[in-house]
Each structure stands twice: as structure tokens, then as C-alpha cells.
């Protein structure tokens, strides 16, 4: 029972909190990253990627940060916190929360972001990760096409 419960939640090592998050929104076939990166050399030079991952345009503090500031250089299946701690992609909110403190606090309380399912009782609930709404490389929300307006009653 306990193990089953474990499967549905993910651990937050430092905080000890559990959040029932949905699976991270990875591109199909990308994870685990170590399939490719385990055999590659680490190039720590800050550059624009030309051969792979070229479709990722970094528009997220790109003057101050680049890929290897968040993705751990040695183990690409993990993300890297500022103090060196490695975390899973399912806990990516801890990484976002390092810079975006107020949003992280609100997200933990359920005010920021989105939760679906049951909010009380034993029913299943899902918390959306930061990455579900904000693409970590290009976090700004894209405009959406709105649903149609209500039918306007005809004036006489």
C-alpha cells in the first residue's frame, strides 16, 4: 500500500513535501537523456547549439544563464540546483523556485498554477508542474485563439 502510494507521488528531498504532479512534459523519445549524453564529451563553453537541440530557442535569462546552469553537465537525466544538489525532472519546481520564490511559495499552496481532480478527500488529484504551463526555455505564454463569443441578441 505504502509503495503504491509512493508511485503516485514524488519526493522533495530537502523539504520533505510530496506533490502529486503529472509526468513532466518531455518531448517524445527524449528521456532518458543519458542514452546519448552518457557517451558524449562535456563541452562547457557557452554557445548556440547547432547540431542537436537546435529547435530550442533559449529566451529565459539567456544573458545570465545557459543550458548547463540548470541541466547537470555530468548526469543529463537530472537537474542541478544552485548548491550542487541533483534533482529529478519530476521535482523541477524546486529549481524554478530558486529564482522565482514568491511563485514557488504560491504554487505550493495551490494559488499559482493549476490543480485538477479532487481537492479534498482520498480522490486522485494532479498538480501541474511549472513546465506544463511555462516552457522552461521560452516561458512567456503564447497567445491563444479564443473560443467564440456568445450569440449577440439581434437588436430590433
Amino acid at each position: 500500500m505504502f509503495l503504491l502510494g509512493v508511485c503516485f507521488t514524488s519526493f522533495a528531498n530537502g523539504a520533505g513535501e510530496e506533490f502529486p504532479v503529472a509526468p513532466p512534459p518531455m518531448t517524445e523519445g527524449m528521456f532518458p537523456c543519458s542514452n546519448c549524453h552518457a557517451s558524449m564529451e562535456v563541452n562547457r563553453k557557452k554557445r548556440e547549439l547547432k547540431e542537436e537541440h537546435s529547435q530550442i530557442k533559449l529566451h529565459h535569462a539567456e544573458t545570465m544563464r545557459w543550458c548547463l546552469d540548470c541541466h547537470d553537465a555530468k548526469n543529463r537525466d537530472k537537474l542541478r540546483l544552485y548548491n550542487g544538489e541533483l534533482i529529478n525532472f519530476t521535482e523541477s519546481y524546486r529549481l524554478c523556485g530558486e529564482c522565482h520564490g514568491p511563485q514557488y511559495r504560491d504554487w505550493k499552496a495551490g494559488i499559482h498554477g493549476k490543480r485538477v481532480g479532487y481537492f479534498t478527500g482520498p480522490g486522485k488529484r494532479i498538480y501541474y508542474l511549472c513546465a506544463h504551463c511555462h516552457d522552461p526555455h521560452e516561458p512567456k505564454f503564447k497567445p491563444l485563439k479564443p473560443e467564440p463569443p456568445p450569440i449577440k441578441p439581434k437588436d430590433s
Binding site: P143, L144, K145, P146, P148, P149, P150, K152
Partner: peptide
């Protein structure tokens, strides 16, 4: 305005 209908919002 109740009946706004642009291509994209916001």
C-alpha cells in the same frame, strides 16, 4: 465589451 472576437488573446 462582451462580444470581442479577435484572432488571439490576450
Amino acid at each position: 465589451e462582451h462580444y470581442y472576437d479577435p484572432d488571439l488573446v490576450p
